[in-house]
């Protein structure tokens, strides 16, 4: 599948934004995080910028962005529509939470309650994003039960590193939370590895013979293409990277996206020192780069069944 850069940017940025919102809400309610004005402005402001920036960039791949509002209408059947509604609905508890924190200096009580709603809505929104892909039977690598869980796990891991960075920047170190973030990094790496083993083990039993129904007469090979240049279907669905590159890229994702931030954060948690902040920021940059690359790979590794009509032997 062709990786649309606006979609990679959207899912990476808004995933981290929703993760950040989730953790700020959870820390407010369960960790007595003080309603510090600068932390509130920076943290909730950054979450808002990442979420809305991501949403706006996702409209960049639309042919008719001015009609995007129509996408809120088909929640009965369409996960894309559900995602849009969930994303917009999240702004309501998010806005109330931010109002309480920034304007009234309160992030508990009734504002803790709306914070928890915002946290739940964040997860629901990211889950819907994953379901857009997971619900497509035409792409074997996406039609897997772990796709949405991985989206949520990566959102919480990247948002967690982001939240930890902000806490440390504004002097609200929380060692417990540091270990929570480290645990989420390890858990999402594990989940992603299980996902990869799933898609590698999935049988590729659809062939050009089954797609054309001509397999009963023997092996089916393309003789003449319907068009001289690549058409939309080939441009959009025909993009694939070689398996050997996929293996290398998977290694880079694991190293930079998970192992580097994991080690950097463990180091800061076990041996506090002047390098704490630089190491935390290194971890943040690494996890964001890793998640963006993982998202690109998620598209580039996915093979659409229509490629069987264009010369792919199996899908």
């Amino acid at each position: 599948m062709h990786p649309a850069y606006s979609v990679i940017l959207f899912t990476t940025a808004s995933g981290a934004g929703y993760g950040l919102l989730f953790w700020l809400a959870i820390l407010s309610v369960f960790d007595n995080l003080p309603a510090d004005l600068t932390l509130g402005m920076a943290g909730l402001g950054l979450a808002f910028a990442l979420i809305s920036g991501g949403l706006l960039s996702s409209t960049a791949h639309l042919g008719r962005p001015e009609r995007a509002w129509r996408a809120f209408s088909q929640w009965r059947t369409s996960w894309l529509s559900r995602e849009g509604i969930a994303a917009v609905a999240t702004f309501v508890p998010f806005g109330l939470f931010a109002f309480g924190w920034i304007m009234l200096g309160q992030n508990q009580g009734i504002f803790g309650f709306v914070a928890l709603i915002a946290a739940a809505m964040s997860i629901i929104t990211v889950w819907c994003t994953g379901m857009i892909y997971q619900s497509l039977p035409t792409i074997r690598a996406w039609h897997q039960p772990l796709v949405s869980p991985v989206y949520v796990a990566l959102s919480l891991a990247s948002g967690g590193v982001l939240a930890l960075t902000l806490l440390r920047l504004f002097g609200h170190e929380s060692e417990d939370f540091g270990w929570v973030v480290v645990t989420f990094l390890a858990a999402s790496l594990l989940l992603k590895r299980v996902y990869w083993s799933f898609i590698d083990a999935a049988p590729r039993d659809r062939t050009s013979g089954t797609a054309t129904g001509l397999g009963r007469f023997g092996r089916v090979r393309p003789l003449e293409a319907p068009h001289t240049q690549a058409n939309f279907v080939m441009r959009e669905m025909g993009y694939a990277i070689a398996r050997k590159h996929a293996a290398k890229l998977r290694m880079i994702v694991q190293l930079i996206g998970f192992v580097v931030p994991f080690l950097a954060l463990v180091l800061t948690l076990t041996a506090a020192g002047p390098l704490t902040l630089p190491l935390t920021i290194l971890g943040l940059l690494a996890v964001m780069f890793g998640v963006a690359l993982e998202r690109w790979l998620f598209f580039a590794e996915a093979q659409h069944v229509v490629t069987l009509y264009y010369g792919a032997e199996a899908a």
Partner: peptide, 24 residues
């Protein structure tokens, strides 16, 4: 009313839908 999100073309196993880049 089509917004040109192309998701329908992803959902079609038969490659029947083609996006019109000029018309969006």
């Amino acid at each position: 009313t089509c917004i040109g999100c192309k998701l329908c073309s992803w959902a079609c196993p038969y490659g029947a839908r083609e996006y019109d880049y000029a018309d969006g």
